[in-house]
Write a protein that binds this DNA or RNA. Structure first.
Lengths: 179, 179
DNA sequence: GAGGACTTTCAGTAATGTTTGAAAATATGA
DNA sequence: TCATATTTTCAAACATTACTGAAAGTCCTC
């Protein structure tokens, strides 16, 4: 068993399990696998190469590659002399994180704020106990969502260095675990 | 159109849309709806009441209520003189957040760390360019995942007050937007 | 220990989400 | 312009997940 074989096995495991993890996020299994493949490929790869490596159909490869481009996680590169499009993933982990953070804020937190603010508004004059409890809960959820949104916004604008610096300061502020 | 009617409409919208949002997280639509229902109910509610309000089957109501109990988001309460079980959701928004944070860390980040660490190990001696790129990427992802795990751990242990205090200090550190 | 109130399970069904493959559209170069 | 390489679309097939309803299980109470 050579080191190269170890690596090839690890590569397959990474792609397959990254896919499984992706689906516990909101991302489809295949999209996560395509992303995994691109993330560990030193060279940009084509639709046909993805099809080959992941054993998926052209339509599937195409859709998922374009969706990743839509997320901003992957860029299209055109090699000179070639007609095909090639795809290259962002590899910097902090950049990947901020992209995903921004995208999920936009897709999940922002609509939640809208919902909560609307529900709060529509229940502000209600008299029943049930209604008052509802109004209060809507307000509290909205306040939290707005707060989370601001924190997300702030973090996504940071560079890696400052982020780590703040985080370490923050982590250090807590009492040490005395185990 | 009375204030009470406004509220009833808002309540239905909240339940239905909270469900839709839930499914963009890893949570099933119905589980999120049950959670929404419990979160806005001033009184604990029974399986039959959930079935009635959400128009779902007994089995479905039962499974989702118990799953919420499993997450720690809902508690079973027994009313004296009653044989039925009633269910009551945690309403404190910060507590809900820390419970979800901990649970998702356990389900998503921890397994990722294991995967990445394993892949890093198995590719440490490889010589090819592709293999070296893989090893590097695994290390960087692992470092980040461990870091995220620690931040999550720390936040989930905070009380709401200190969390807000730190966050405001943090938010204030960034240059103001000059628009 | 029988009867009823309630909970739990699960096989079958329904609903939803994903993938395929082939055809249509588009782009490229001679 | 045409032939061909490539991308894009999408209806139908497939896979996965969620839900139902009824039956089995549990736990009281008399």
């Amino acid at each position: 068993m050579s080191a190269q074989d170890d690596f090839l096995g690890a590569k397959d495991d990474f792609i397959s399990q990254w896919g499984a993890l992706g689906s516990s996020w909101g991302i489809s299994r295949t999209m996560a696998q395509v992303h995994a493949l691109l993330m560990i490929s030193p060279e940009p790869i084509s639709t046909d190469q993805s099809m080959e490596e992941l054993q998926i159909s052209r339509g599937n490869a195409h859709t998922n590659l374009k969706e990743l481009v839509g997320w901003g996680l992957v860029k299209i590169v055109v090699k000179k002399g070639e007609r095909k499009e090639f795809f290259e993933a962002e590899k910097d982990v902090w950049k990947i994180f901020t992209i995903v953070l921004r995208e999920r804020k936009r897709r999940e937190i922002d609509p939640a704020i809208e919902l909560l603010s609307d529900c709060s508004e529509r229940s502000k004059n209600v008299k029943s106990a049930e209604g008052k409890a509802f109004h209060k809960q809507m307000n509290e959820l909205e306040d939290f969502a707005v707060f989370a949104s601001q924190v997300g916004e702030t973090i996504s604008k940071l560079k890696y260095g400052p982020a780590i610096k703040y985080a370490n300061k923050f982590l250090g502020l807590l009492p040490k675990d005395k185990s």
